[in-house]
Design a protein around this nucleic acid. Structure first.
Lengths: 155, 155
DNA sequence: TATTGTTATACTCTATAACTATA
DNA sequence: TATAGTTATAGAGTATAACAATA
């Protein structure tokens, strides 16, 4: 949104938005939202509770509920009681869910390859650079606490 | 939100979000929102109507209205009748607005320098790479038409 | 008493539609 | 008839708070 040159904020915002649009479209062909894919992917990795997946995916637990509702309705995931904590539920992928996650991962990988492909050998530099900004210790590291801004901006 | 590796979407989303948080905080010290700064900056460039600024800033015209209301209340901008079209209004910055825009631009430049500084000489490569993705003809170019997704995602 | 997941609700942000005045 | 700006309203998305079951 800013107007300094070279406008880092603009570049990064547009990249984020455009990529989201592309991913949304690509996943929509498979009947998935980006968030559903994200949750399904983490669920397919192993025994995780709703809360754990919510934390990994940076989702509110209430958002997690509706996302899982959707995945269950679609027959892609199931909530199964945790054997160790009767309050908690593990998220299990169904066979259909597992198959779809793999298909979706391939679709996304193709998309990334297409996008980054235009950079040629500098492709690595961009990804590395972004990781250095966003990763642990970087100036744009997402520190889980200070995360949510929550202020009303008023115009 | 995705989980492919290296996860371009995650990197870019987090960079965008973190930078927005930093910019919001930095500008809040000056009493500005990012959007107000963006509009004020474009207004300071010369004779532009609300509609023209809205288009440049990728804002809806109704969002423009409330943003300008805020800027006028704060004494940073004024709406002046267009001499050539009595329907239109030009956005003029006040002296206070002009001074604040300059201060804000410096604050943001400092922030960018701080963030990009950690990359050292690869700084250019990152910015260039992002521009190649997002800029005209790039795989993530924002084409003004297909811009808004507007679909209900349902879980 | 604290925590997992659920429900219901409120809030923020932004777009849509309808309107006025000009062109 | 179309456009600039305004107003009022509705929609999507997400968080907050209160609750039930269990730890």
């Amino acid at each position: 949104m800013a107007r300094v040159s070279p406008d880092l904020s603009f570049l990064v915002d547009k990249a984020s938005e455009s990529l989201a649009v592309r991913m949304t479209a690509a996943l929509a062909d498979l009947g998935l939202t980006a968030r559903q894919y994200c949750v399904l992917d983490k669920a397919s990795a192993g025994d995780r509770t709703q809360g754990q997946i919510a934390e990994e995916a940076l989702l509110d637990k209430t958002t997690m509920v509706t996302t899982l509702d959707g995945l269950e309705r679609a027959g892609l995931a199931r909530r199964v009681p945790s054997p160790t904590d009767r309050r908690a539920r593990l998220v299990a992928t169904t066979d259909a869910g597992e198959a779809l996650v793999e298909k979706a991962a391939a679709v996304i990988q193709d998309l990334y390859d297409e996008v980054l492909g235009v950079l040629g050998p500098e492709r690595e530099a961009l990804v590395d650079g972004l990781f250095r900004l966003v990763g642990p210790g970087g100036p744009l590291a997402v520190d889980a606490d200070a995360a949510r801004p929550r202020r009303s901006s008023r115009a």
